[in-house]
Design a protein around this nucleic acid. Structure first.
Lengths: 347, 347
DNA sequence: TATTAGCACTCAATACTAATGAGTGCTAAT
DNA sequence: ATTAGCACTCATTAGTATTGAGTGCTAATA
């Protein structure tokens, strides 16, 4: 008796598995041998289908909700389906035609990010997620210092894309308007053109060691304070209501998963942070999300770029039974549009 | 036979109605005469209680889910309860002790707003809502112009509180760094100290008619463009997950209401916009929310101030069966803290 | 006249049972 | 290797009886 573990699927098995996952995504009901053979015109009998299904189950691609029900995909089954989908799709390499789009008209970044997330959710009918560009990678174009009162200075950094970051900094000495103006001139001349990351990690130190002139040191204090602390990307989610419209999502155990994801934002942040390291479409299916509390959710992501540097991630969060065939191209395309837009802005 | 419509409640009826609403808020189960009399030690018999209940039902304060069930409050019943609660509570007038709080440490406004909304939701165990301060009322402290490319200028307005608004403005003529500097000096001298609203409505016009010097007109163009378009407050919601943990909220019809509120953000915006006009705690209960699609939700709000001007609103959104006794003081207190904080910042 | 006891009645909720039907696994024949 | 045939499984649905918390009404009571 041959062992069935871990072998590759033959042509027929592969076709059947793919069709079965497809069908389950469409209907949400366990797939039984008889109607399945009819619906997809397989030229084999239900009995044979049952045999194949049994094999696929033993191999770990399928499972039965209960002993006399049809088959539904396991997470591994979904994975097989999505992988073969991605292979076939292999994101067209031509230039993206960024239409005169809603997006390109947004002038405030806050709103641009909101639009992107909303677009993802409304087009996919699931939830849209986005990790906004990490300020770390922003290249400083201009620094403005605005005195708020005798001790507080508002530091405004304008990135090359036009993105604005602010920090309130409290300093020890009292400041005159004139000295602030000097500081500002100095900081602009020294820091512009560098990314925040570089500034934080090396530039300031170099400047400090290069010279010990006191007024400039005060300016550097301000700069240093501005770059301390979290310069985190922000997580945006939109369209949770879409997920709540999916009947299976509102059922106890899946609802718990969903609430857990929404509550513990770090889970999503981690996942997206990871996805930022990798180019192209990424999918995480069900149990591949390394959190014991999360069941039945999948996420499709792609990073977006400024120039050729990944600066953030967008994605779609939905049930494991997600319409990957629609979502994958959507995420891919949207990622390209956003990359394009940001890259153009930073020129 | 006396008509029972529209008379005032006597002492006993009032006490019973209040206790009944209180009990229903606690348990969520229809209140029956026997156990109710026992639990609250009313010195009347269940039969008498039934008579009183029948009267209260005829008056419109109570209803029965079905003919042999206990009573539950109508929206009018909740209204009676909340009003008598508010009367008793009458928000203490002493100074608020703003503790060295999480809030006062926030340096970025975005994050401050997030914190407030999150605080409201986690303290109430419902959803926190906030209408961020309308930029309209922000008093300009400083204006910075940053050239992005030959045609685009980033206009940065710093409000007296330290809040920052940005606008990207596209102009026809090509700009030199020097002319921008001139514009910036001019705009700062003329516009600082005015609220955006005033600038938009009167100041610019006055300046235009007062003088026709061309370079200044160009500066005014920039200013005008910056103030055109929506300067809306933003709506923040946090803690929807809390609402989804309430069993009755996940039931079909209430879930639909909830999704409708989340989707059609304008409903909430309108409600909050209205609440901003009125000082003190406001409550909207169930059908008082003028949207046919919304059922079973209540909202408790209060405006917050900078100085003595209402600039935004905070509130808690929950089921009609909300713990008003906890939520009302929470919203009231939080409102005072936020007002205090913003007012101090703008000194 | 307001209150209470007593009683018949209502109805959601629960538990039990039977019938249905879509599905399976196994075996023997092709 | 494939298929027909058959006994078996089990979620789902509908039907039925039981229970119990609740009511309204009437007549007695303070």
């Amino acid at each position: 008796m041959e062992t069935l573990k871990d072998r590759l699927l033959d042509e027929r098995e592969s076709a059947i598995l793919t069709a079965l996952v497809y069908d389950y995504i469409e209907t949400g009901k366990p797939v039984g041998s008889r109607s399945f053979v009819q619906k997809y015109q397989f030229s084999i009998s239900p009995a044979t289908m049952r045999n194949v299904m049994a094999d696929l189950e033993q191999l770990g691609y399928l499972q039965q909700p209960h002993s006399s029900a049809g088959r539904i995909p396991t997470d591994m089954g979904y994975r097989y389906y999505v992988d073969s989908l991605l292979e076939k799709y292999s994101s067209f390499d031509g230039d993206v035609q960024v239409k005169e789009d809603v997006l390109s008209k947004e002038v405030q970044f806050e709103k641009l990010f909101d639009s992107v997330t909303r677009m993802l959710s409304s087009a996919s009918r699931y939830a849209g997620v986005m990790l906004t560009p990490s300020p770390y990678f922003a290249v400083v174009k201009r620094i403005e210092l605005v005195p708020l009162d005798s001790r507080d200075v508002l530091v405004i950094m304008v990135g090359r894309t036009g993105m604005v970051f602010t920090r309130k900094v409290r300093i020890s000495a009292t400041l005159t308007y004139d000295s602030l103006y000097e500081f500002s001139k100095y900081l602009n001349s020294e820091l512009c053109g560098y990314a925040l990351q570089e500034i934080k990690e090396t530039v300031i130190k170099e400047l400090r060691s290069a010279q010990m002139q006191s007024s400039n040191n005060m300016a550097l204090d301000i700069a240093e304070l501005s770059f301390v602390g979290e310069t985190d990307s922000m997580l945006r989610i939109d369209g949770i209501e879409n997920l709540l419209k999916i009947p299976e999502m509102v059922e106890k155990e899946h609802l718990d998963s969903l609430l857990h994801i929404i509550e513990e934002k770090n889970i999503l942040k981690d996942i997206l942070g990871l996805a930022m390291q990798l180019d192209g479409i990424q999918t995480m299916i069900g149990n591949e999300i390394e959190s014991v509390y999360v069941r039945g959710c999948s996420i499709v992501t792609t990073p977006y770029k400024i120039g050729n540097k990944n600066v953030g991630v967008i994605g779609v969060l939905g049930p494991t039974r997600m319409d990957y065939e629609k979502v994958v191209p959507l995420v891919d395309y949207t990622g390209r549009v956003v990359s394009d837009l940001l890259t153009n802005m930073s020129k």
